[in-house]
């Protein structure tokens, strides 16, 4: 833009009221903030309140300070569940984001059949997670399940009791979580990848940069902000995966797949111990919030570098 054009533009514009420019963003954010205040912040405060006492679901809360939290610290079930949740979280995020990125890259590089792949790979996302969980738990059954039947066909045996063994049940659950979320990550990342000008890729190709080189030197640096978003969303998803776990294993065998939301459900709705369940829910929230902020910090830092 040349200098005289700038002058022209400034003169032609109706003097923008500076205050209005500042108020406008606040005004458009207000409805969302009200919604969040009433239906997210207020209930969280409610959970904190209930976590400070005993509640049977009907009467008043009998407060007794931090007793529930002291009990949590000594509860091996809670510690086990935190460990399970972290394993589930890391497995789900690493595989979902990596696969999503590779699949999106394949589509944006227009491999043969890319248009069909894009539709097919997104399909698992639209299945309700409860149905995905129900289906796969059936598919993982020994001898009668589809997974074992297919493994049997290629000579790997058809009698693996994936969900009945505490050493494999969590991996099966992570598999289903990744299965349901990868298409989502792919679609989001693809949107970012397609904003990269094709000429950049062409120029790199002409300079002899291979496919892997272009993925790491052109595509990834340009989609860092979206990588941050999708990593955050997938992390949160992994702590909300109640539906998958509940449909597949109900948290078992033993407690081997009891991620935190499942434990909270058991404490509250099975043991009717709402105060204790609320305390676990509050701890869960703190863990998730820390992870969310960490992820955003990491990626926001790189965002600034990239721009």
């Amino acid at each position: 833009m040349t200098a005289d054009k700038v002058v022209l533009a400034t003169a032609a514009a109706p003097r923008p009221p500076r205050r209005r420019a500042r108020i406008f963003p606040i005004a458009v954010m207000a409805p969302a903030l009200v919604l969040l205040l009433v239906l997210v912040a207020y209930p969280i405060a409610g959970s904190v309140r209930i976590s400070l006492g005993t509640w049977d679901g009907i009467g008043a809360v009998a407060y007794h300070g931090l007793d529930n939290y002291r009990r949590l610290l000594r509860d091996s079930l809670v510690w086990e569940s935190i460990g399970t949740s972290l394993q589930f979280f890391i497995g789900t995020v690493v595989f979902t984001v990596t696969f999503g990125c590779l699949l999106a890259n394949a589509i944006s590089r227009k491999v043969p059949g890319a248009r069909i792949f894009k539709v097919v790979w997104f399909l698992p996302v639209i299945i309700p997670v409860s149905i995905a969980g129900i289906f796969w738990s059936n598919a993982f059954q020994p001898t009668t399940g589809v997974v074992n039947s297919l493994l049997g066909l290629i000579g790997l045996g058809d009698d693996h009791a994936w969900l009945a063994s505490s050493s494999t049940a969590l991996y099966a659950a992570i598999f289903v979580a990744v299965w349901t979320q990868t298409g989502y990550a792919m679609l989001i990342l693809l949107g970012a990848m397609e904003t990269i000008p094709e000429e950049v890729h062409e120029a790199a190709t002409l300079d002899g940069v291979g496919a892997a080189g272009r993925l790491f030197r052109i595509t990834l640096p340009n989609i860092v902000p979206m990588l941050g978003t999708i990593t955050t969303l997938t992390s949160v998803f992994s702590f909300n995966a109640f539906g998958i776990i509940y449909a597949m294993t109900r948290g078992g065998p033993g407690n081997s797949t009891s991620i935190l939301p499942v434990l909270v459900y058991k404490q509250s709705f099975v043991d009717q111990d709402y105060g204790y369940g609320s305390a676990t829910a509050v701890i869960t929230t703190l863990i998730v919030a820390v992870i969310g902020i960490m992820v955003m910090r990491i990626f926001r830092q790189q965002t600034l570098d990239a721009r």
Binding site: I44, L233, N240, S268, T285, A289
Partner: peptide, 18 residues
């Protein structure tokens, strides 16, 4: 991000009450 980081389970019981 904080609101997004909220596991649904933490709002469950108070929402039922509300």
């Amino acid at each position: 991000v904080l609101a997004l980081s909220v596991p649904l389970v933490v709002a469950l019981i108070p929402t039922f009450e509300l």
